[in-house]
Simulated assay, not measured.
Amino acid sequence: MSSTIHVVGGAGTAPTEKAAYDAALADANLHNYNLVPVSSVVPADAEVVRVEEAPDLGPAGNRLNVVQAEASTVGPETVAAGIGWATGPGAGLFYEADAESESDVRDRLETGLDAGRALRDWTFDHEETLIERAEAAPGEHTCVVVLATYGESEPIC
């Protein structure tokens, strides 16, 4: 059975760091789930799809498995986070990174994916990245997130 992994980014600004994180999740339409971080392996039967906003993945409060890149700052600063992925006919890899600049995130993603591919005897024929960047105004808490959501959410209890 194949499943879809949605990759989505978001940015948010709020009076506190946690509120900015919640706002960034809301921008990605993932603010109503209990996020469970998983390591960065793409199952062989999964399709990875970049989306502008996460679709409805189940009821509020459910558990949702994710790979997440997240970065927060208080302005005046720039912040960026991203996920890169390499896939092929079998399993694939995600790699997460954050930094002050989009170019630093891109470099870290490429370096990480290269290292991950070198550890595995797998075939990779596709590579992609999604980077979210934001500039925080003076005194503002700003957060950026990029998440890869594994399938549908599940009840937490």
Rank of each mutant, 00 (worst) to 15 (best):
S103Q: 13
V36T: 12
D98Y: 09
E17F: 01
N65Y: 14
G92D: 08
D104K: 15
L57D: 06
L93Q: 14
E127I: 10
A81G: 01
E154A: 15
D104P: 11
T73L: 06
E140R: 00
R50Q: 12
A80N: 02
T142C: 03
S39F: 12
E47N: 15
D104G: 12
E70Y: 15
A91G: 12
E100C: 09
A54K: 00
V79C: 04
S103A: 15
A44L: 05
L147I: 00
S101E: 10
T87L: 08
P55M: 03
A19Y: 00
T4G: 02
N65E: 15
A23N: 03
A136G: 08
A71K: 11
S2E: 10
N62A: 11
I83C: 04
V144Y: 01
R50D: 08
G9E: 02
V38F: 09
R63P: 07
T73P: 04
E70Q: 15
I5R: 05
A54Y: 01
V145G: 00
V146C: 06
L64Y: 09
G12C: 00
D114H: 11
E110Y: 14
W122V: 07
E96Y: 14
C157L: 11
E77R: 15
Y33G: 07
P55R: 07
L35T: 07
D104T: 15
T87S: 12
V146E: 04
Y95C: 10
A80Y: 02
Y95P: 08
V105A: 07
C143M: 04
Q68S: 13
V145D: 02
N32E: 12
E96C: 15
V38Y: 08
R117M: 14
H6V: 10
A19K: 08
A86L: 09
A115T: 13
S103M: 11
A136T: 02
A11S: 09
S3F: 14
A19R: 11
A136E: 04
C143P: 00
T78V: 12
D27V: 06
R133E: 13
I83G: 00
E127N: 08
G75W: 06
T73H: 05
W85S: 03
E128A: 12
A86W: 09
D104H: 11
P155G: 10
G92M: 05
D22K: 14
V145H: 00
V41D: 14
E53K: 15
A28L: 00
D98V: 07
L57F: 01
V48R: 03
E135Q: 13
T142A: 08
G9A: 07
E127D: 12
V51I: 02
G61I: 13
P55H: 04
G92R: 09
T149N: 01
D98I: 04
E132P: 00
V41C: 11
T142E: 02
S72M: 12
M1A: 14
T129C: 08
I5W: 06
E127G: 07
L25F: 01
E47M: 09
A115N: 14
N29P: 05
R120H: 13
F124T: 09
L113V: 06
D27F: 01
V51D: 00
D27H: 06
A46C: 07
E47T: 14
L93E: 14
V49S: 04
E53N: 03
N32P: 05
T13E: 05
D22S: 14
A19N: 02
S2A: 11
E17G: 02
A46F: 10
A54M: 03
Y95S: 12
P43Q: 04
V38R: 08
I131W: 05
E47C: 06
